[in-house]
Write a protein that binds this DNA or RNA. Structure first.
Length: 278
DNA sequence: ACTCAGGGTCGAC
DNA sequence: GTCGACCCTGAG
């Protein structure tokens, strides 16, 4: 085991970033979090105002990968400066500075956010980790060090087993996603290259993926910044703190906010979500 | 034990 | 556009 320096601790808040509802596979342990990126287990932790990553046989590629995953290339100061004349947003960035948007695997994000519908973070975590433990392959020594199952493995696992481990009405949706990825109906690696509307169109082909879930997938799985996912929490923030009309449906709110905030949409959305939920 | 709500979506009207 | 149904779980 060895570890490498990632950044100063002021630059990222591990708890809100890794365990704030973007990813569901990071588990707090002592001064950091255990989790899996690209089927390799890592421990990301804070010590003496510095953030480090630890793994077995940690090479420079791994460090770059983790750096990317945590979006440490994103300049938070630059984003927050743009909104320094908006009291509400300015305070949000001050209060939760260090909250970042993760750059996750598209497939894991698709399954995770289908699972998120009318659920809560605790239960989503339970579902996703149970799926990995029961169907995945062990890849490390920690309790949750399992590979995330691909579409073929999940189909093999089957709708009934998904229901047995608590996915409920989302089970057939996940199976539908598997089928459409396997038969090429959706090319998940090509979505990076599409414009927003086309990307939305591709993802919402999946049964159980509407605009909100698709927006989350684009934000967390494709690192798109021009996306404003509106759920019940973000809706409250937009209406109560930024003066949007409560008559607007979430889709309209998303369209308006996206238009207003452009490439800062995803970060504004994330800070609103986190503060409304806290 | 019982109620409630949680990062929505779908199909019927 | 609106409305009920869909599953399950932890919290109060």
């Amino acid at each position: 085991m060895n570890n490498k320096f990632l950044c100063n601790s002021i630059e990222i808040d591990l708890s809100s970033t890794l365990d704030g509802g973007q990813s569901f596979r990071w588990h707090k342990f002592e001064n950091g979090f255990n989790g899996v990126i690209n089927n390799k287990p890592y421990f990301i932790f804070q010590e003496n105002k510095k953030i480090f990553v630890e793994a077995e046989e940690l090479n420079s590629n791994d460090v770059n990968l983790v750096f990317n995953y945590l979006s440490l290339d994103v300049d938070l100061r630059k984003i927050s400066k743009k909104f320094k004349n908006n009291l509400y947003l300015n305070n949000l960035f001050k209060k939760y500075y260090g909250l970042r948007i993760l750059n996750q695997d598209p497939w894991e994000t698709i399954v995770s956010f289908i699972t998120s519908s009318v659920s809560n973070i605790l239960k989503i975590k339970k579902n996703i980790n149970d799926l990995c433990v029961l169907n995945g392959e062990k890849i490390g020594k920690n309790k949750y060090d399992y590979a995330f199952p691909g579409p073929i493995k999940i189909i093999d696992f089957g709708e009934n087993n998904l229901r047995k481990i608590g996915f409920g009405f989302r089970s057939p949706y996940i199976i539908d996603a598997c089928k459409k990825v396997i038969n090429g109906d959706i090319l998940i690696n090509n979505i990076y290259d599409l414009n927003y509307d086309d990307a939305l169109h591709q993802l919402t082909k999946i049964n159980g993926v509407g605009r909100k879930v698709a927006d989350c997938i684009l934000t967390y799985g494709y690192h798109r910044k021009d996306v404003f996912a509106v759920d019940r929490w973000v809706r409250r923030g937009l209406i109560n703190k930024l003066g949007y009309s409560e008559k607007l449906q979430n889709e309209k709110l998303s369209i308006k906010a996206r238009k207003k905030y452009g490439n800062e949409s995803s970060y504004i959305q994330q800070y609103i979500f986190f503060s409304e939920k806290s």
